[in-house]
Computed example of a mutant assay.
Amino acid sequence: MTTLTAPAPTGSGPKPVLDGRRHRGEVGLVYVAVIVPMLALVAAVPLAWGRGLTWTDVGLAVGFYLVSALGVTVGFHRLFTHRSFSAKRPLRIALAVAGSLALQGDVLTWVADHRRHHAFSDKEGDPHSPWRFGTTPAALVRGLWWSHVGWLFEPARTNADRFAPDLVADRDISRISRSFGLLTLASLLAPALLGGLISMSWWGAATAFVWASLVRVAVLHHVTWSINSICHVMGDRPFTSRDRSTNVWPLAVLSMGESWHNLHHADPTCARHGVRRGQIDISARVIWVFEKLGWADSVRWPTPVRLQRLARTPA
């Protein structure tokens, strides 16, 4: 087990980057969570061709996608990982639950992995850098696979006590983290239940399960993983960062603004990632709404002076 060191978020001395290994059951569940939705995505095309897709399925899939995606982008990422804003307790709990519905791991694990990513971005210790194996074409192909999905099966566990001590000490967040299994079941079964009740049929429950549970999870998985892989290899780099992070505009809407990744790595605590004209950032707009409602405060909005200092090219 590696003992990489870097400045610890809190405390008087560095703690190990990794904290033991996941048991085989946990790794097995990762395989199921990754492969089953992926197979459903492949099977969804002939299912839709055979009229296995209704407007109810579409509505449920879009609704659950928005809730779970924003739970990850606004909650897991901008609030819990980077503390881009502060939130009232009910909102913190709601965002932690919503992010858990994305089936990308419990909130403590997700935050610890992502803070580790920023501590070692595109260097040794980064859990999912596409440059892990080198810069040759063959190494980059291998690295893209690793950063997109391969790293998920790594049994080593990021040390949450080192990278997320604030959340480990938070009773609400720790409780939600321990409830990840139940939230996973809720995320998969709730769309099927709603689809069955709305259509009053078992077939409606089945198609809702395929589209609003499995396909929705698969699409969100690959959009999120593309930020790890594609957004560290190709795209624009208008801002100065210490790594190879890029902006990839085609992913902006589906990723809720996360694909404006270059600015994020240049200024990680900024609550808005798409800062230039035409850069859609749905997550930032949601945070703005929360602020206006009084549910969020201390929002770290970008300032013209800071953006100018970070810019490689004129705005």
Rank of each mutant, 00 (worst) to 15 (best):
G150H: 10
D122Q: 02
G125D: 00
V149P: 06
W151K: 01
S129P: 00
R157D: 04
R142N: 08
P130Y: 11
P155F: 00
R157S: 09
D122G: 00
S121W: 10
E154H: 13
T136E: 08
T135I: 05
F120T: 00
D126C: 09
D122M: 00
W131I: 08
G125C: 08
L144K: 06
L152I: 11
P130C: 09
H148E: 06
P137Y: 14
S129N: 03
R157H: 12
A156M: 07
D122L: 00
A138K: 12
G134Q: 04
H148G: 04
A138M: 14
P137I: 11
G125N: 07
P130D: 11
V141D: 05
A139S: 14
V141E: 10
F120R: 09
R157M: 05
L144C: 08
L140Y: 11
T135F: 11
E124K: 14
W145G: 06
L140E: 12
G134S: 08
W145C: 03
E124T: 14
L152A: 11
A138V: 15
W131S: 12
S129D: 01
T135G: 08
W131Q: 12
G143R: 04
F120M: 06
R157V: 14
K123N: 09
P127W: 11
S147M: 04
G134W: 02
L152E: 10
V149K: 07
P137F: 13
W145K: 00
W145M: 02
T158G: 02
T135M: 08
A119S: 15
H148W: 03
W131E: 09
G143N: 04
K123F: 01
W145R: 04
K123Q: 15
F153A: 14
F120N: 08
T158N: 03
V149T: 14
E124A: 10
W151A: 01
A156S: 14
G125Q: 04
R142A: 14
T135A: 15
P127M: 12
W146M: 00
G125T: 05
D126A: 08
V141W: 14
P130E: 10
L144Y: 04
V149N: 07
P155I: 01
E154K: 09
G143F: 01
G143M: 01
P137C: 09
S121L: 05
R157Y: 03
K123H: 12
T136W: 07
V149M: 12
